[in-house]
Write a protein that binds this DNA or RNA. Structure first.
Lengths: 142, 142
DNA sequence: CCTTTTGGTTATCAAATGATAATGAAAAGA
DNA sequence: TCTTTTCATTATCATTTGATAACCAAAAGG
């Protein structure tokens, strides 16, 4: 079975998501971090604590490069490191206070952009959006 | 009015889209092009012909850098250049045969990944996906 | 005409990212 | 215990990307 038409819609949808994301997170430029460093911090926000291997998987980075970026984040004081006492090979990373504050700033600005986008929508429409998000996430985007 | 919860869902959804996109387009690595070059070709697929300025806008690239990447794509024979006779400052770019073939290969592989993701879904569910895509695109992602 | 603006190109440099090899330390397994 | 595997780090290099200045040609606008 061929679903070319649907596939093309998904592709161009993904492209739109990329562009809007890029626009909404432009506040990152005001902070002293690079784009991949931001991705790492963002990932830490949603799942803490995390190991370098997990980060490498989810952010699509090699382990050595992940390690390098984590070191930079540590130097900037944006995250903290601990050891998993159950398995002392595993290094556990989490956001520091400062890292949380940074992400709060970036998110606050992004959220303002988001609020503008959805301004004027009814409660029913917002529910529709939420359901659409969940549907796509479950069926298409893992 | 504050929609933090919905906003967070959008953020993590966008992140999932990024990841799946990355996974589906890993066929790009087999081709002799970089990621931004691929983005440019992808953009050309959906709107042809395009000027450097338009590309720069949509791919979030400065004009000089866009020009540089377009030159590389020309050298690789993946796109063609023409002049807008109405306004001879404007350069019109479009995919070459070879560029189309390249994109066809990448898309074919990506579509296989997509087909696997949606394998086993009913026609009704597919329609639901399509509607969700359109809703989100219109209300949230421009 | 002459000036200004717009669209594009080239050149150049700094920074970020990708890739790989070598190493170490802890755990798992024989 | 000894070997192998896993997780992580450091170091290094090539490539890609970002940013900026200088420049050119065509159009627009007096």
């Amino acid at each position: 079975m061929d679903h070319s038409a649907l596939f093309q819609k998904v592709v161009s949808f993904a492209s739109a998501v990329h562009e809007v994301t890029h626009e909404m997170t432009r506040g990152v430029k005001d902070e002293d971090i690079t784009h991949v460093q931001y991705k790492i911090l963002e990932y830490m926000m949603f799942s803490q604590p995390v190991t370098p291997s997990e980060i490498a998987d989810c952010v699509n980075l090699s382990l050595p490069n992940t390690s390098r970026e984590l070191r930079k984040l540590l130097e900037k004081g944006l995250c903290e490191k601990g050891v998993d006492e159950a398995d002392r090979r595993r290094q556990m990373f989490r956001l520091s206070e400062e890292g949380q504050a940074l992400m709060a700033r970036v998110f606050a600005q992004a959220q303002r952009g988001f609020e503008q986008r959805i301004a004027g929508l009814s409660a029913a429409e917002l529910t529709g959006i939420e359901q659409a998000l969940e549907l796509l996430r479950k069926r298409v985007f893992e």
